[in-house]
Simulated scan of single mutants.
Amino acid sequence: MNLVRPAAVAGTFYPAEAAVLRTEVERLLARAEHAGEVAAVSWPKAIIVPHAGYIYSGAVAASGYALLAKGRGHIRRVALLGPAHRVPFRGLALPGVQAMQTPLGNVAVDPAGVEALAGLPQVREMPTAHAQEHALEVQLPFIQEVLDGVSVIPLVVGDARPEAVAEVLEKLWGGEETVIVISSDLSHYHPYAEARAIDRHTVQEILHFESTPIEHEQACGATPINGFLPVARKHHLHPRLVGLCNSGDTAGSRDAVVGYAAVAFYGESRDHAGC
């Protein structure tokens, strides 16, 4: 068994050279801080952030991760869930490794978190689901830069019922030492104005914990989102939109765009940032 899952999309979704990558992530985070997205006194319990190439969605992702910076030294592990793009399968997949590699170094896979999921029928080790998957990998450099020294429980989510995802999240919920990161883009390949309308509607559904499930046409990470939202509501989290745009706003044509949002979820006892 490989002990480390090697980086698969360095050089395509984000820079492959460590110094260039660190500079880029620092720039995106500094820009988010300058935009005033870090007014909260404390940090969110969970964030939903996009996973496209940094040139497209990096600024929106950074607006979510900048909010976690206040948890540096307190946050010790990240439960990281994202959709399967490469390999179809049922359930949720762990990578079966001890660490995840990026050009910035290795991120340890949290053994206690993995052990907590042992025995759940919907969770299995499946290295092939992780091998070429970008949805989790693109989050790792942000986690490394913002939190430093944390471990992750990386789960690629395949065909799974919301209740199955929710059960996993409950097992990993923990206290202030644990944060949840849900990796998802929004709508794909609609004309600019149409995409903006679709994405605004999707965000409102998320912010209001609508009972109607998010569809995969609205968000590629609909499955982890639909599992997360009932748990967030049960734990009385309060969502705040901190970033919303699409590829037509950043680095792409407006003929067919991909949408991106960052949503932060705060506990009742924590101050939270407005949008």
Rank of each mutant, 00 (worst) to 15 (best):
P154W: 06
T202E: 05
R27T: 14
E167T: 14
W173G: 10
I153C: 06
T223S: 11
L67C: 13
G58C: 12
A40R: 05
N226Y: 13
A116V: 11
E215N: 00
G113N: 13
G105V: 04
R233P: 00
Y266L: 01
N2D: 14
T202K: 04
F209L: 11
V114P: 00
P88R: 05
L136G: 09
H134I: 04
Y192M: 11
Q139M: 14
F265C: 02
I48H: 04
T223A: 14
A59R: 10
S42I: 02
A251N: 14
E133I: 04
G113H: 11
P239E: 05
V38K: 02
R77V: 03
A62Y: 10
L172C: 10
V20C: 01
I182F: 03
E194L: 14
G175L: 04
A79E: 06
P127W: 09
T23N: 12
H74P: 00
S151P: 01
A7G: 13
T178S: 15
C220N: 10
E17K: 09
V152W: 13
S63R: 15
H130K: 07
Y266V: 01
Y192V: 09
V87Y: 12
Q98V: 01
V156E: 04
A164V: 00
A129F: 06
T128R: 15
A30R: 14
L117M: 08
D255A: 15
Y189P: 04
R76C: 01
H238S: 13
I182S: 04
V97P: 08
P224T: 05
P127N: 09
L3W: 09
V60N: 07
S269D: 14
A30P: 00
D148A: 15
D271P: 04
R161I: 00
S187A: 15
A256Q: 14
A232F: 07
Y14G: 10
G119K: 01
H238Y: 13
V41G: 13
V258F: 03
V87D: 01
A251L: 14
V4L: 07
T102N: 10
R124N: 01
N2M: 12
P162C: 11
